[in-house]
Design a protein around this nucleic acid. Structure first.
Lengths: 238, 238
DNA sequence: TGGCTGGCTGATTCTTGAATCAACCAGCCG
DNA sequence: CGGCTGGTTGATTCAAGAATCAGCCAGCCA
């Protein structure tokens, strides 16, 4: 975007302050929502003077926009890498789910903001939001198109829609955690959810008669359990 | 004065004004978003004086809340009816998709507001939003639990998550239209999308070797076509 | 030491838009 | 007819909070 702007990110010291503020913004946005918070809140959270926020960011919008770009660009880059890589579709789908859930594991707040404040919302800002959003869908739609040509997909499946469904599943799966429907504490659960999303998407949820190829069919352990006996440690994606 | 209520909906004449305003609110919200519009916009859209909005609604929040309740209660009632009915899971899933897409067909704007402004957004109001949202998930989770007991579900599928995925798919499918990724004009497309969502959810997207039971496997016609040569009229699922 | 620079401060100003309210205008009843 | 009622009007009031700006202070160079 336009340089000559607000943020001199050349050095490293200055950036530190800037990052502090950005971090605070993410946390506050996650807690109270973009519209529900004041710049003052962000400043306070960052332990910084009100005015300084405006020293580093042109305005409130730019703040959100930056949060968006920071978080989203990382995600989309990884997603693109997967989508454009070689290999069987099954694997790619799993890896995309990996990317999303890993992002959540690393920084749930940021993901929350991305999901709750940015992904939707027709509103205001010039932000690409929708554009960006649409981009991923298109991106993975291409992946599905190629997979279809390779005969990996059922012939009656539309790539674009399949793409929407995959991300819809992932997003809603994450939302379940974000919203507290499922307990986000337990890493094992996240791991299970991730696997299940990919599997369900690929194989469906039905108990179909023939299922020789379905991968991990360990019997279910409930998604939301009491206090989680200290058992399964997540495989840590290795 | 002091009729401690805002809306006297006993008669029918008064209600008409009220409904005009509500309608306008939906349209404006859909166009500019809740936060992006002023009460003045709603009033203008309704062709009504600014103050009148406050005669029928306590405040802006109540306006949104009403939009929400109006739209959502209808949807959830139908969804519940389906979820609690008797019959095979396959059919129920299809019918739930029906309900959602029918709602969209009847009033896309309202659905847009529901999806974009209400389902997410931690924001302000006391509205149940999340609660309500969570309710549907729980509701259908029960449906899946029962289906699982009846042996209709793969044993490794978590009902709660399955529920989230179903609605995630539906929502994202609709979002594709809302956002303009897919062309919402063509009824046939909506019909196809609807069927595909349910099918993908149930059977997965993979071209699995054994597929004797998969229902409608007509080969795909693209979701987004040019001007739609006047050919395939949707089978209307009968 | 003294003056200069630039990150930093936070009270002050300015804007926006929600909410109020006094007056208006039918129709209606006595 | 004249006064009452209740829907309707829109200018006015008011609060919230975004954005500004006049300076402060720490470090640095002369």
């Amino acid at each position: 975007m336009g340089q000559q702007k607000t943020a001199p990110e050349n050095g490293t010291r200055e950036s530190e302050r800037r990052r502090t503020i950005l971090r605070a913004a993410i946390d506050v946005f996650a807690r109270k929502g973009y519209h529900g918070c004041r710049i003052a809140d962000v400043a306070k959270e960052a332990g910084v003077a009100y005015g300084l926020v405006y020293h580093y960011f042109k305005n409130k919008d730019e703040l959100l926009e930056t949060v968006f770009e920071t978080g989203w660009s990382g995600f989309i880059a990884r997603a693109r890498a997967v989508a454009e890589s070689e290999g069987p579709l099954v694997e790619k789908v799993h890896r995309i789910a990996d990317v999303a859930f890993e992002a959540y594991r690393v920084d749930p707040r940021a993901v929350k903001v991305l999901i709750l404040e940015i992904a939707r919302s027709p509103a205001g800002a010039r932000i690409n939001r929708q554009t960006a959003f649409v981009d991923v869908i298109r991106l993975s739609a291409q992946m599905f198109t190629r997979a279809k040509e390779a005969g990996e997909l059922r012939p009656d499946v539309d790539p674009l829609l399949a793409s929407a469904l995959l991300f819809g599943s992932i997003e809603m799966g994450l939302t379940a955690f974000v919203v507290g429907l499922a307990d986000a504490r337990d890493t094992a659960m996240l791991e299970r959810a991730k696997a299940q999303i990919a599997d369900s998407f690929l194989h469906g949820v039905l108990l179909s008669p023939a299922k020789e190829e379905a991968p991990q069919l360990q019997d279910e352990a409930p998604l939301k359990r009491e206090k989680a006996a200290p058992r399964a440690r997540a495989p840590k994606r290795g």
